[in-house]
Protein backbone atom coordinates (compact mmCIF):
# COMPACT_ATOMS: atom_id res chain seq x y z
CA UNK A 1 0.00 0.00 0.00
CA UNK A 2 2.89 2.35 0.79
CA UNK A 3 4.37 1.46 -2.58
CA UNK A 4 1.07 2.22 -4.32
CA UNK A 5 0.77 5.58 -2.66
CA UNK A 6 4.34 6.79 -2.52
CA UNK A 7 6.14 4.83 -5.24
CA UNK A 8 8.79 2.13 -5.18
CA UNK A 9 11.30 4.22 -3.26
CA UNK A 10 9.02 5.02 -0.34
CA UNK A 11 11.65 3.70 2.10
CA UNK A 12 15.33 2.78 2.05
CA UNK A 13 14.68 -0.71 3.37
CA UNK A 14 11.52 -2.56 4.32
CA UNK A 15 10.56 -5.42 6.58
CA UNK A 16 7.14 -7.07 6.69
CA UNK A 17 5.58 -7.87 10.06
CA UNK A 18 2.32 -9.59 10.93
CA UNK A 19 -0.13 -8.60 13.69
CA UNK A 20 0.92 -10.25 16.92
CA UNK A 21 4.43 -11.11 15.73
CA UNK A 22 7.09 -10.03 18.23
CA UNK A 23 10.36 -8.30 17.35
CA UNK A 24 13.23 -7.84 19.76
CA UNK A 25 15.76 -5.01 19.77
CA UNK A 26 18.03 -5.64 22.73
CA UNK A 27 15.82 -5.41 25.85
CA UNK A 28 12.97 -3.97 23.90
CA UNK A 29 10.05 -6.01 22.57
CA UNK A 30 7.95 -4.63 19.74
CA UNK A 31 4.57 -5.89 18.66
CA UNK A 32 2.01 -4.66 16.10
CA UNK A 33 -1.73 -4.79 16.84
CA UNK A 34 -4.70 -3.99 14.60
CA UNK A 35 -5.77 -0.33 14.79
CA UNK A 36 -9.01 -0.79 12.85
CA UNK A 37 -8.31 2.36 10.84
CA UNK A 38 -7.70 0.96 7.35
CA UNK A 39 -6.40 -2.27 5.87
CA UNK A 40 -3.05 -3.04 7.53
CA UNK A 41 -3.12 -0.16 10.00
CA UNK A 42 -1.41 -0.95 13.29
CA UNK A 43 -0.79 0.24 16.79
CA UNK A 44 2.73 -0.40 17.94
CA UNK A 45 3.41 -1.69 21.43
CA UNK A 46 6.93 -1.19 22.75
CA UNK A 47 7.83 -2.97 25.98
CA UNK A 48 11.00 -2.63 28.02
CA UNK A 49 11.23 -4.35 31.38
CA UNK A 50 7.89 -3.58 33.09
CA UNK A 51 6.91 -0.61 31.01
CA UNK A 52 4.72 -0.86 27.96
CA UNK A 53 4.08 2.07 25.64
CA UNK A 54 1.47 1.82 22.90
CA UNK A 55 1.35 4.27 20.01
CA UNK A 56 -2.10 4.01 18.55
CA UNK A 57 -1.58 5.79 15.26
CA UNK A 58 -4.92 6.48 13.60
CA UNK A 59 -7.56 4.12 14.95
CA UNK A 60 -11.24 3.51 15.28
CA UNK A 61 -13.20 1.16 17.46
CA UNK A 62 -16.19 0.94 15.12
CA UNK A 63 -16.67 -2.09 12.94
CA UNK A 64 -15.27 -2.01 9.42
CA UNK A 65 -15.72 -4.89 7.00
CA UNK A 66 -12.49 -3.97 5.18
CA UNK A 67 -9.96 -4.36 7.98
CA UNK A 68 -9.11 -6.24 11.14
CA UNK A 69 -10.95 -4.93 14.22
CA UNK A 70 -9.24 -2.63 16.70
CA UNK A 71 -7.63 -4.32 19.70
CA UNK A 72 -7.33 -2.74 23.08
CA UNK A 73 -3.73 -3.24 24.19
CA UNK A 74 -3.33 -2.75 27.93
CA UNK A 75 -0.31 -0.54 28.57
CA UNK A 76 1.27 2.00 30.90
CA UNK A 77 1.63 4.84 28.46
CA UNK A 78 -0.89 5.23 25.66
CA UNK A 79 -0.12 7.60 22.80
CA UNK A 80 -3.48 8.34 21.27
CA UNK A 81 -4.58 10.26 18.22
CA UNK A 82 -7.21 12.93 18.74
CA UNK A 83 -8.56 13.79 15.30
CA UNK A 84 -12.07 13.92 16.72
CA UNK A 85 -11.05 14.84 20.25
CA UNK A 86 -14.06 17.00 21.09
CA UNK A 87 -17.32 15.80 22.64
CA UNK A 88 -19.28 17.17 19.68
CA UNK A 89 -17.94 14.35 17.56
CA UNK A 90 -20.15 11.34 18.04
CA UNK A 91 -20.30 9.55 14.76
CA UNK A 92 -23.34 7.32 15.01
CA UNK A 93 -23.78 4.15 13.02
CA UNK A 94 -22.11 4.17 9.60
CA UNK A 95 -24.74 1.76 8.24
CA UNK A 96 -27.43 4.40 8.89
CA UNK A 97 -25.47 6.95 6.89
CA UNK A 98 -25.27 4.54 3.97
CA UNK A 99 -29.04 4.11 4.24
CA UNK A 100 -29.34 7.87 3.87
CA UNK A 101 -27.28 7.69 0.69
CA UNK A 102 -29.41 4.87 -0.72
CA UNK A 103 -32.61 6.74 0.15
CA UNK A 104 -31.32 9.74 -1.77
CA UNK A 105 -30.41 7.55 -4.77
CA UNK A 106 -33.95 6.17 -4.73
CA UNK A 107 -35.40 9.70 -4.46
CA UNK A 108 -33.39 11.11 -7.37
CA UNK A 109 -33.15 8.33 -9.95
CA UNK A 110 -32.41 10.91 -12.66
CA UNK A 111 -29.34 12.28 -10.88
CA UNK A 112 -25.88 10.85 -10.27
CA UNK A 113 -24.57 10.59 -6.71
CA UNK A 114 -20.97 11.58 -6.20
CA UNK A 115 -19.53 10.45 -2.90
CA UNK A 116 -16.34 12.18 -1.82
CA UNK A 117 -14.23 9.73 0.17
CA UNK A 118 -10.51 9.40 0.88
CA UNK A 119 -9.12 6.94 -1.58
CA UNK A 120 -7.32 4.88 1.02
CA UNK A 121 -9.70 3.07 3.34
CA UNK A 122 -12.79 5.27 3.37
CA UNK A 123 -13.74 4.57 -0.24
CA UNK A 124 -13.44 0.80 0.21
CA UNK A 125 -15.35 0.92 3.48
CA UNK A 126 -18.20 2.86 1.89
CA UNK A 127 -18.35 0.35 -0.94
CA UNK A 128 -18.37 -2.57 1.51
CA UNK A 129 -21.09 -0.89 3.57
CA UNK A 130 -23.17 -0.36 0.43
CA UNK A 131 -22.82 -4.05 -0.35
CA UNK A 132 -23.79 -4.97 3.23
CA UNK A 133 -26.88 -2.81 2.79
CA UNK A 134 -27.84 -4.94 -0.21
CA UNK A 135 -26.84 -2.53 -2.99
CA UNK A 136 -25.59 -4.80 -5.78
CA UNK A 137 -25.46 -2.46 -8.80
CA UNK A 138 -22.05 -1.61 -10.24
CA UNK A 139 -20.26 1.16 -8.32
CA UNK A 140 -18.22 3.67 -10.30
CA UNK A 141 -14.76 4.89 -9.39
CA UNK A 142 -12.74 8.03 -10.06
CA UNK A 143 -9.39 7.13 -11.64
CA UNK A 144 -7.44 8.04 -8.51
CA UNK A 145 -9.33 5.38 -6.53
CA UNK A 146 -8.66 2.44 -8.77
CA UNK A 147 -5.20 1.20 -7.77
CA UNK A 148 -5.84 1.13 -4.01
CA UNK A 149 -9.30 -0.33 -4.41
CA UNK A 150 -8.03 -3.13 -6.63
CA UNK A 151 -5.33 -3.80 -4.08
CA UNK A 152 -8.04 -4.21 -1.39
CA UNK A 153 -9.80 -6.70 -3.67
CA UNK A 154 -6.55 -8.60 -4.19
CA UNK A 155 -6.28 -8.94 -0.39
CA UNK A 156 -9.64 -10.68 -0.26
CA UNK A 157 -11.90 -7.74 0.55
CA UNK A 158 -15.14 -8.37 -1.39
CA UNK A 159 -16.37 -5.17 -3.03
CA UNK A 160 -18.65 -6.45 -5.82
CA UNK A 161 -18.62 -5.07 -9.35
CA UNK A 162 -16.60 -1.87 -9.77
CA UNK A 163 -16.28 0.17 -12.95
CA UNK A 164 -14.25 3.21 -13.94
CA UNK A 165 -16.40 6.33 -14.33
CA UNK A 166 -14.15 7.39 -17.15
CA UNK A 167 -15.55 6.81 -20.62
CA UNK A 168 -19.15 6.44 -19.42
CA UNK A 169 -21.92 8.28 -21.27
CA UNK A 170 -23.45 11.03 -19.15
CA UNK A 171 -26.98 9.67 -19.42
CA UNK A 172 -25.86 6.22 -18.31
CA UNK A 173 -24.61 7.59 -15.00
CA UNK A 174 -28.13 8.60 -13.88
CA UNK A 175 -29.11 6.74 -10.74
CA UNK A 176 -25.55 5.49 -10.13
CA UNK A 177 -23.09 5.95 -7.28
CA UNK A 178 -19.55 7.10 -7.98
CA UNK A 179 -16.75 7.39 -5.44
CA UNK A 180 -14.18 10.11 -5.91
CA UNK A 181 -11.50 11.90 -3.90
CA UNK A 182 -13.09 14.83 -2.02
CA UNK A 183 -11.22 17.39 -4.10
CA UNK A 184 -12.71 15.98 -7.30
CA UNK A 185 -16.32 16.45 -6.22
CA UNK A 186 -16.01 20.21 -6.62
CA UNK A 187 -13.94 19.96 -9.78
CA UNK A 188 -14.88 20.40 -13.43
CA UNK A 189 -14.53 16.61 -13.49
CA UNK A 190 -18.11 16.48 -12.15
CA UNK A 191 -19.47 17.90 -15.39
CA UNK A 192 -19.59 14.42 -16.87
CA UNK A 193 -22.37 13.50 -14.41
CA UNK A 194 -26.08 14.29 -14.79
CA UNK A 195 -27.12 16.90 -12.14
CA UNK A 196 -24.91 15.31 -9.47
CA UNK A 197 -25.82 15.16 -5.79
CA UNK A 198 -22.61 15.84 -3.86
CA UNK A 199 -22.06 13.69 -0.80
CA UNK A 200 -19.01 13.49 1.44
CA UNK A 201 -18.21 10.61 3.77
CA UNK A 202 -16.24 12.03 6.69
CA UNK A 203 -16.38 12.46 10.43
CA UNK A 204 -16.14 16.20 9.82
CA UNK A 205 -19.62 16.11 8.34
CA UNK A 206 -20.92 15.98 11.89
CA UNK A 207 -20.53 19.75 12.03
CA UNK A 208 -22.99 21.49 9.72
CA UNK A 209 -20.78 24.43 8.88
CA UNK A 210 -18.10 22.03 7.54
CA UNK A 211 -20.55 20.48 5.13
CA UNK A 212 -21.85 23.85 4.02
CA UNK A 213 -18.39 25.31 3.53
CA UNK A 214 -17.64 22.53 1.08
CA UNK A 215 -20.97 22.84 -0.68
CA UNK A 216 -21.99 19.33 0.34
CA UNK A 217 -25.66 18.53 -0.11
CA UNK A 218 -25.59 15.09 1.47
CA UNK A 219 -23.20 14.86 4.42
CA UNK A 220 -22.43 11.30 5.50
CA UNK A 221 -20.91 10.95 8.94
CA UNK A 222 -18.61 8.00 8.30
CA UNK A 223 -15.21 8.15 9.89
CA UNK A 224 -12.13 5.99 10.05
CA UNK A 225 -11.09 7.70 13.28
CA UNK A 226 -12.50 7.03 16.73
CA UNK A 227 -15.12 9.54 17.85
CA UNK A 228 -15.06 11.22 21.26
CA UNK A 229 -16.81 8.34 22.99
CA UNK A 230 -14.46 5.92 21.27
CA UNK A 231 -11.35 7.84 22.27
CA UNK A 232 -12.33 8.19 25.90
CA UNK A 233 -13.56 4.61 26.21
CA UNK A 234 -10.38 3.31 24.62
CA UNK A 235 -8.17 5.36 26.92
CA UNK A 236 -9.98 3.92 29.91
CA UNK A 237 -9.84 0.42 28.50
CA UNK A 238 -6.06 0.44 28.04
CA UNK A 239 -5.66 0.98 31.76
CA UNK A 240 -2.77 3.34 31.01
CA UNK A 241 -1.92 5.84 33.71
CA UNK A 242 -0.25 8.24 31.35
CA UNK A 243 -1.67 9.51 28.09
CA UNK A 244 0.11 11.40 25.35
CA UNK A 245 -2.23 13.06 22.92
CA UNK A 246 -1.32 13.97 19.39
CA UNK A 247 -2.67 14.62 15.96
CA UNK A 248 -5.83 16.66 16.27
CA UNK A 249 -7.78 18.30 19.08
CA UNK A 250 -5.34 17.64 21.86
CA UNK A 251 -6.57 20.21 24.39
CA UNK A 252 -9.97 18.70 25.12
CA UNK A 253 -8.73 15.14 25.40
CA UNK A 254 -5.85 16.14 27.66
CA UNK A 255 -8.31 18.02 29.85
CA UNK A 256 -10.64 15.01 30.00
CA UNK A 257 -7.77 12.69 30.98
CA UNK A 258 -6.81 15.01 33.81
CA UNK A 259 -10.37 15.08 35.15
CA UNK A 260 -10.13 11.27 35.24
CA UNK A 261 -6.94 11.45 37.26
CA UNK A 262 -4.70 10.41 34.38
CA UNK A 263 -1.40 12.09 33.65
CA UNK A 264 -1.72 13.54 30.18
CA UNK A 265 0.03 15.89 27.86
CA UNK A 266 -0.18 16.98 24.24
CA UNK A 267 2.55 15.96 21.84
CA UNK A 268 2.93 18.83 19.44
CA UNK A 269 4.30 16.98 16.47
CA UNK A 270 5.50 19.14 13.65
CA UNK A 271 3.41 18.72 10.56
CA UNK A 272 0.41 17.39 12.41
CA UNK A 273 -2.50 18.91 14.18
CA UNK A 274 -4.50 21.74 12.83
CA UNK A 275 -3.61 21.33 9.21
CA UNK A 276 -5.23 17.94 9.35
CA UNK A 277 -8.60 19.53 9.70
CA UNK A 278 -8.71 19.92 6.00
CA UNK A 279 -7.68 16.32 5.38
CA UNK A 280 -5.85 17.56 2.34
CA UNK A 281 -5.50 14.76 -0.14
CA UNK A 282 -1.97 13.92 -1.27
CA UNK A 283 -0.97 15.55 -4.50
CA UNK A 284 -1.46 12.39 -6.54
CA UNK A 285 -5.17 12.47 -5.79
CA UNK A 286 -5.59 15.87 -7.30
CA UNK A 287 -4.88 14.64 -10.79
CA UNK A 288 -7.02 12.42 -13.07
Amino acid sequence: MMRLRYGDNFAASTQAIAYGEELRLGDVKIKFHPAGHVLGSAQIAVTCKDTCIVASGDYKDASDPTCAPFEVVPCDVFITEATFGLPVFRHGNAADEVKKLLASVALFPERAHLVGAYSLGKAQRVIALLREAGYDAPIYLHGAMEAITHYYQSRGVALGELRPAKGMKKADLAGTITLAPPSATSDIWTRRFPDPVTAFASGWMRVRARARQRGIELPLVISDHADWDGLTATIEATGAGEIWVTHGQEDALVHWCKTKGLAARPLDLVGYGDEDEHEAPPANEAEA
Binding site: D61, A62, S63, N93, A94, W228, D229, A233
Partner: peptide, 10 residues
Amino acid sequence: PLAGEGQGEG
Protein backbone atom coordinates in the same frame (compact mmCIF):
# COMPACT_ATOMS: atom_id res chain seq x y z
CA PRO B 1 -16.90 0.73 20.56
CA LEU B 2 -17.66 1.07 24.24
CA ALA B 3 -19.71 4.07 23.39
CA GLY B 4 -23.13 5.37 24.17
CA GLU B 5 -24.79 7.37 21.48
CA GLY B 6 -21.56 7.01 19.57
CA GLN B 7 -20.56 4.54 16.95
CA GLY B 8 -22.61 2.05 18.66
CA GLU B 9 -22.64 -1.23 16.84
CA GLY B 10 -20.69 -3.32 19.24
